[in-house]
Amino acid sequence: MQKLVPSSLSRRDLLAASTASLTGAVLAQAEDASPEETAHADAGTAMRPPIRAQVSFTVNDRPRELDLDTRTTLLDALREHLHLTGTKKGCDHGQCGACTVLVGGVRINSCLTLAVMHQGDAIITIEGLGTPENMHRMQTAFVKHDGYQCGYCTPGQICSAVAVIGEIEAGIPSHVTPDLTGTPELVAEEIRERMSGNICRCGAYSNIVDAITEVAGSRA
C-alpha cells in the first residue's frame, strides 16, 4: 500500500499520529499550517499536528510539485499555493460552483476535493482556457453577451459551460432530457439545467445562457 506521509514518518509513527500520542518525529511536522487550514481547529482535535505530503500534477499544462498540509483542498492549492486566483472560493461547500475547474477534462468543484488526491492529474483552470490576448471562445462569448456583472462567479461559469457542451456532445443525459434512450440536444433548457450548479448572485443567468447558446450553436 502506498503511504503518502512524509518520508521521515514510519508506519509506527503514522499510527501514533493517528492516535494523537505525539512522538518527536510527528511533532517535527507540526509547523506552518496556513491560516485557512487552522481556522476551524478547536481544543479537542487541535492536539493532532498537521501532516504534510507531496503531490504532483499539471496545472494548465505546466508540471507542478507541491508539499502541502494534507488538509489543503485543490481550490486552496490553486489559489494560495500556486497563486492562480482566477478560480474563486464562494461557499467552500459545493453549493455555488465558483470553484469549478476541469480535471482530466471533467468539471468538478475544487473546494470539495483534496489536492493530494490529484497525483498525476491534468488540471485546467480559467487561466488555462484562454488569456486576455487569446481568449477561449466561451470567454469571448461571455464578454459579448455581458454574461456577468460583478464577475465573481464567471471563471466557474465559463469552466462549467465549456464542460457542459462537451457533456451534451458526449450524449450524457440530464434531468430535462425527454428521452433517456435518445441523444440530448444543445438547447437552452438543457443548458439551464446543466448549469444549475453555478450560482450567480448578480443574476446574469439569461445572458450566460445566451453566451453558451452562441458557442454551442457555432459548434453544431
Partner: peptide, 25 residues
C-alpha cells in the same frame, strides 16, 4: 478540518484491513 494522515489503498482487502487497524480511519 483537523489534521489527518493520508494513504492510497491498493486493493479492496487492503483498504478494509487498513481501516480496521487504524484508529479514526
Amino acid at each position: 478540518m483537523t489534521p489527518f494522515t493520508y494513504e492510497r489503498a491498493g486493493s479492496p482487502a487492503e483498504a478494509a484491513a487498513a481501516a480496521a487497524r487504524t484508529p479514526g480511519a
